[in-house]
Simulated scan of single mutants.
Amino acid sequence: MKSIATLTMNPTIDVSYDVGKVRHTHKMRTDNEHYAPGGGGINVARVFVRLGGNARCYYLSGGATGPALDGLIDLHQLVRTRIPIEGPTRIAADILEHDTGKEFRFTPAGPHVSEAEWGRCLDLLAEADCDVMVMSGSLPPGVPTDFYARVTRLLAPRGIEMVLDTSGEALATGIAQGDLLLVKPSIGELAQYTGRTLDNLEEIGSAAMDIVATGKARLVAVTMGHEGALLAKAGGTTYLPALKIDAASAVGAGDSFVAAMVHALCQGDDDLTAFRIGLAAGSAAVLRAGTDLARPADIERLLRMVEPA
């Protein structure tokens, strides 16, 4: 089994509550309060370790909230390398309204990160000891948009396989750098990357195959929410429809997808099997409200519902 490291440049303390009804001005009493370490790479590591793998988390942490994030990561028994910053770690809130079943999500932009701080991060990453590096999540203010491309230039020549899950300019520059094992955009992120609307599977598949055909990534997995997912690889594309489940949350589906697909690849499963497991994990993550992410028993159960690839 290959080992992974994950990079989270803009981590969060994820807090979730339930409330009867969301009303402006009024004080609303909540219940079912939960706190969890969050952000793309940390979420990926949480699920990857649940599945039996080994993962190290590289992440930024600072301010009065930084120690709280560190403690939450320790509670999840994740191996960690903390890059200290001055700005406070952000806190994201997920609110479930019982009256309507609707979910409300509030996510700050994150702290400003200085050049010295993100430079220190690159110095630590240069010493990373892993088989696969998963670069996941947004970049906080102050970090250059080509940061993930810089990490790839640093690690890919050492034979470390690179996985990218981000959006906007960070996605564009990361793909332009290439040397990626896997890139996982959502349908919206892929459309933004291409600069055009992608109205059907043919257009989605063509856009994903362009990335593969130019040698930028070996695999492109496009997640499409309730419309399923599409995988592009040498030889063509494969589409899997979404599973018919009652979704209670949207939190962590993409991260769970990445974690499970990368875990399957790391244990030697073929690309299409890994893709099917990724879809099952993404579906498992949304079964319950809050920030718990995918659980192995749910992934195993839902995998039996995934169509053969």
Rank of each mutant, 00 (worst) to 15 (best):
G71E: 14
D74H: 08
N43T: 06
G87T: 04
G38I: 04
A36R: 14
G71I: 00
D70I: 11
G66M: 03
R82Y: 03
L60F: 14
Y35D: 09
L78K: 01
Q77H: 14
P67S: 04
K27N: 10
L69G: 04
H26F: 11
N54K: 12
I83Y: 03
A64L: 14
N54G: 10
L60S: 03
T89G: 01
I42C: 09
Y35M: 15
G63N: 12
T81G: 00
I85V: 15
I83E: 05
G62W: 06
I42K: 09
Y35L: 15
H76F: 12
D74N: 07
N32C: 05
V44M: 03
A64C: 04
R46G: 07
V47G: 04
G63D: 11
G62L: 06
N43W: 06
T81F: 00
S61N: 10
G38F: 05
N43Y: 06
I85A: 03
Y59P: 11
H76W: 12
G40Q: 09
P84V: 02
K27D: 11
P84I: 02
L75D: 13
I91K: 12
C57R: 08
R90A: 05
G41W: 09
L51W: 04
M28A: 14
Q77C: 05
G62N: 08
P84H: 02
M28G: 08
V49D: 04
T89F: 00
R46V: 10
H34D: 12
E33I: 14
P84D: 02
T65G: 07
A68T: 15
L51D: 03
M28L: 15
E86W: 00
R90E: 02
M28P: 01
R90W: 01
R56L: 13
H26K: 14
E33N: 05
L60A: 10
Y59I: 08
Q77D: 11
G62A: 05
A45S: 15
E86H: 10
D74Y: 00
R90G: 01
H26I: 12
I42W: 10
A68H: 14
M28N: 15
A68P: 00
T25E: 13
N54R: 13
A55E: 06
V49L: 07
L51I: 07
Y58E: 03
N43S: 06
R80K: 15
